[in-house]
């Protein structure tokens, strides 16, 4: 699914937080958005996912303009994974119940099979199915959140800081899983993060946001080489490079 965002503007009670953002993502590609807190990066993602009905501009998937209120079929195609695996799963529902919600809503068949398949796709044991979220580790919960998105058989995954609440060892596992899933299922990713090395690991192109503007779009390769134009990109890059070098 190709994604086109054109002059997207979002305001909250009169205050504009996204001020005309435009970018395109080709089918099967992955696009990263970096920026500090308050730069509007998550707000862009939420509007794309249909979680915000108050925006202007153009959001199009596969060349079709997305309406302000999305039809149910839209959510089969586009799914989102949130930052905090502790907060995004219902604490009183078993993993089985969490994963069957979407297939039930969309009247899908063979729910039992689908859950079994999606659990193995995210490398969770089948025994995890009848556990509650608090019985799983942080990494396992993030796998459940990814499984919940995958069960819709989407073409686009919107990832909002999918690994920032996890340890680096678990982060590596989740990033590998996301890379494998994209290759297997030809998914299109849009990922938001404040960590440049995480973004460039998974995404080939990166948009840098500050204060509601996307000030630069650059390929991961150019970012690595330092071929960047905007001062903020340079600042983020030098911080990241500085930390990687030995003290």
């Amino acid at each position: 699914m190709t994604i086109e965002i054109d002059n997207l503007r979002i305001s909250f009670v009169g205050r504009e937080v996204v001020k005309g953002v435009s970018f395109n993502v080709a089918k099967g590609a992955s696009f990263g958005i970096v920026g500090e807190s308050g730069s509007g990066k998550s707000t862009v993602l939420r509007a794309m996912a249909g979680l915000n009905n108050d925006w202007s501009g153009r959001i199009a998937f596969s060349g079709e303009d997305a309406p302000l209120f999305r039809p149910p079929a839209f959510f089969r195609k586009v799914q989102m994974v949130f930052q905090d695996p502790y907060g995004s799963l219902h604490p009183r529902q078993t993993i089985d119940r969490i994963l069957s919600e979407l297939p039930l809503v969309h009247g899908m068949d063979n729910i039992d099979d689908r859950i079994a398949k999606v659990l193995s796709a995210v490398a969770l044991p089948q025994t995890a199915r009848f556990r509650y979220p608090h019985q799983l580790s942080g990494g396992q919960r993030q796998r459940v959140a990814i499984a919940r998105a995958l069960i819709a058989e989407p073409e686009v995954l919107l990832l909002d800081e999918p690994t920032s609440a996890l340890d680096v060892s678990v982060q590596a596992e989740i990033l590998n899983l996301l890379a494998d899933l994209r290759a297997e299922r030809n998914l299109t990713y849009v990922m938001v993060s404040h960590n440049l090395s995480v973004i460039t690991h998974l995404c080939t192109e990166v948009g840098v946001m500050i204060d509601g503007h996307m000030v630069e779009q650059v390929t991961a390769e150019d970012l690595r080489l330092g071929n960047v134009n905007h001062a903020h990109t340079r600042e983020l890059r030098s911080l990241s490079v500085e930390l990687e070098e030995p003290a």
């Binding site: 982060q171 590596a172 460039t200 690595r224 490079v241 990687e244």
Partner: peptide, 8 residues
Amino acid sequence: CMPSLMHP
């Protein structure tokens, strides 16, 4: 296991 900007 940390991703790296400079050494992909």
